[in-house]
């Protein structure tokens, strides 16, 4: 890039704000970013209005880091606007890549969610059963809220995306590598995930032996051996089917991989790959024995699709089926 500074935009759609913190976790490297780019849009840390970005020329933003899933009209509007205004659009973090935590809403439905959040939940006091309205009249005029979707989508399901930077949130060294690649123009082919294509097991230093599991444990139930593979000890770990780049941080400290970096190259369905890996370590040969072991693994779909349900092949629970159900009983929780 010449001495002319590039323009950088950052946006959060349906997300928790952790990705914004991850950018700040670059520490002093953020000064390099500031040296290379003028930040033209970053509502989390500076006062920008949507009109500011709408007023830019098409393609005026060189790089836009877009975090968050798409779950309402406002998220979608900003995705379209930022796509139009940006030369390079990066799906930043697990939410924009795969749907992540907001995407877990696809296990239930809008109506069931509204009912729980605004009426049933124990901490709610709403005797009139008021629900958010798209339009409401107040003395000053009409107020509007963006339409809340039934299905959470990923950024790439709404607009074309140039690069993906997975992780919940992406690790600082990877953000740094991505920013460096962008600044020096050494980018991988468009459509790539930026980062190594290995699994978490490759980066995990625990000893791996043959795995044969008779029982799954929740993390609070046992104190795992610090040196042996967690899955071997009956703790669920998605590392076998999950892209690394994180340095296997979670298994290193005794917590099985949650799967936040998502699928490896060429994988159509992240959950199916974790499922296959988990199935292969069950120490059983008959459906009855298998079922007995699986009874100790509540909520398998939640484990397999924790970060990538909207991006998965089936994307969501069948519409209109209400509350999330537990695998074992099939009863609404």
């Amino acid at each position: 890039m010449s001495d002319k500074k590039g323009k950088l935009g950052l946006y959060w759609a349906s997300s928790c704000g952790g990705c914004e913190i991850a950018v700040l976790a670059l520490h002093e490297k953020i000064l390099d970013v500031a040296a290379a780019f003028d930040i033209v849009f970053w509502p989390c840390v500076m006062d920008f209005k949507y009109e500011d970005v709408e007023a830019l020329e098409d393609g005026e933003i060189d790089v836009c880091l877009f975090n968050g899933a798409i779950r309402n009209d406002e998220n979608a509007h900003m995705a379209h606007v930022l796509r139009q205004k940006s030369k390079v659009l990066v799906a930043f973090g697990a939410c924009s890549f795969g749907g992540s935590m907001p995407g877990l809403a696809n296990f239930t439905d809008k109506d069931a969610m509204f009912d729980w959040i605004y009426k049933q939940s124990p901490s709610t006091d709403n005797p009139q059963g008021t629900l958010p309205q798209k339009h409401s009249q107040v003395p000053e005029g009409e107020l509007t809220l963006p339409n809340f979707w039934r299905t959470v989508k990923t950024l790439a399901q709404i607009v074309p995306v140039d690069y993906y930077l997975p992780g919940c949130p992406p690790e600082a060294h990877q953000i740094e590598a991505a920013v460096t690649a962008i600044v020096t123009g050494q980018l991988p082919p468009p459509g790539s995930v930026i980062g190594p294509d290995v699994t978490v097991c490759d980066e995990c230093s625990r000893t791996k032996n043959e795995k044969k599991i008779k029982h799954f444990y929740r993390p609070q139930e046992i104190i795992p051996d610090p040196d042996v593979c967690l899955l071997e000890q009956g703790l669920f770990c998605a590392g076998i089917g999950t892209r690394s780049g994180c340095g296997a941080l979670c298994p290193q400290v005794g917590m099985g991989c949650r799967g936040c970096y998502g699928p490896n190259e060429g994988v159509l369905d992240h959950g199916a790959k974790i499922l296959t890996g988990i199935a292969s370590v069950l120490d059983a040969n008959t459906p009855e024995e298998v079922d007995k072991i699986l009874d100790t693994l509540p909520d398998p779909a939640g484990y397999f699709y924790r970060f990538h349900l909207p991006q998965s092949l089936l994307r969501r629970r069948a519409l209109g089926n209400g509350q999330k159900q537990t695998a074992k009983t099939g009863e609404a929780t």
Partner: peptide, 15 residues
């Protein structure tokens, strides 16, 4: 058999 058992539970959760 093992995969199918796990797949069945997963699909049940997906309705």
């Amino acid at each position: 058999i093992r995969r199918f058992a796990l797949l069945k539970r997963t699909l049940r959760q997906l309705g």
